[in-house]
Amino acid sequence: MTPLNAVLDNLDQFFKAFGYTLFLFLVCAVASMALGALLVAMRVGPIGVLRKVAAVYVSLVRNTPLVLIFIFFHFAAPIIGINFKWVQIYVGSFDFTSAFATAFIALSLYTSCFVCEALRSGVNAVSIGQAEAARAIGLPFSGVMTQVVLPQALRASVPPLASALIAMLKNTSVAGIFFLAEATATMRGLSNDFSSQRLGIFLCFAIGYIVLVEIVSMISLSFERRWRIA
């Protein structure tokens, strides 16, 4: 009996669990970046009302614990008629049902605030002269943003964006306590079944997460290198 038998005998479960984690991460990354980009456009744009709305939304949601957002969507929202029972997608051995959809909504809403802040720090990092020069040659707000500021801001916001996404990757574990059979929930199940090998199981899953985190940070590093100005 090696201390890893529990994981080695259940490798299919192990990879399936991380499959859920990875897939949740990918869809949430896309959604939260889209929503975050929209928020940051509202936050730096010329319309005062939208600026305030985005600021309030960001400071409210980012100060709310993620667990509370999950609790809201799982236990409070169904009472007022918001539920995701209609989501029933089965791909191979993976089931994407209401647990997955709820996790997707909660995580994306939560992470979009951090994405917004990351992008905003990138916009702030672009030196004032750039925007002024763009205005001086007659570009309107949309032109200033899309032609001059955003390309440079994106470059500057790669590191904070990556750390927001890495935090989100780790936050997918919260979905595990809300009925999604991803890595953390599976670790709990396995260590209940093989309680003598708790430490080994824990280390395997921790290393699984660490590998995923390292992959994300390597991708971000390569983007950083590619976009670095000489």
Binding site: K170, N171, T172, S173, V174, G176, I177, A183, T184, M187, R188, S191, N192, S195, S196, R198, L199, F202, F205, A206, Y209, I210, V213, E214
Partner: peptide
Amino acid sequence: VEFFRAMPVLLLMIFLYFGFFVSTQ
């Protein structure tokens, strides 16, 4: 430092709780 930073804190919490605080052995 790298180990604890790159791992979800929830994973550690669940491991500690079920491993040490409600462990039967």
